[in-house]
Amino acid sequence: MVSQPTTISRAAEIVRISRIFDFLLLVPILLVIIGTYHLSMILTVGDWDFWLDWKDRQWWPIVTPLMGITFPAAIQYGLWKHLRLPIGATVCTVCLLLGMAITRWFAYHLWTNYPINLVLPATLIPGALLLDFVLLTSRSFFVTAILGGMLFGAVFYPANWAIFAPFHQPVEYNSSLMTLADVSGYSYIRPGVPEYLRIIERGVLRTYDTYATPLSAFCAAVLAVPLYGLWSYIGKLFSTTRFIDKF
């Protein structure tokens, strides 16, 4: 005689299968985000994020958050709109950090002998947390774009200063004034990255004395707002559920 499942055991079974499905889906999603977001940052931010002696106070705080807000905005849209999950930005930046950590450790440190401090990545997690918190509390993409986007751009430099400040100590090296970061970049030979490629405060932002960093942070904050809007829209286009809703 075959026993029939009770209502309670069937409900428990459904919950269990649903959780298994969650994690079966979560793993490939995370792997895809690690791969694509990391690749996107390599192609757009590139040397600014790879090398310690590229992280200047004018371009690095602009380029990195502006290129970094792309995936968080798009993924955040999809997860909030269809699942009411305010974790899209944080998921992306954690995935990015994992991808970077793997690359820097295995490819740059173990394989090509660079000291890990020369290739320390920057963190985008603080800005992403703020982006998610603002979305959760405001429940509005518009407010998130204005407030969250601005915070994402503005906090990038101060949040990373604790990591990179030690390398900005001055050194007299071969009769020149350099930072420890400059000396490191000079010492550890990179045949494909000659010194002249570095874009160190090159440009016309010259009239504000030594206040390049606050201006760059402000610039990043303002520009992050429309970029958040653009990438949210791209997230909207790519996160349609119309193919699964019929089931």
Partner: peptide, 12 residues
């Protein structure tokens, strides 16, 4: 960090 490294300078 700012207090610990008060004499930090920009990349040269």
């Amino acid at each position: 960090a700012d207090q610990k490294y008060p004499e930090s300078i920009p990349l040269q």
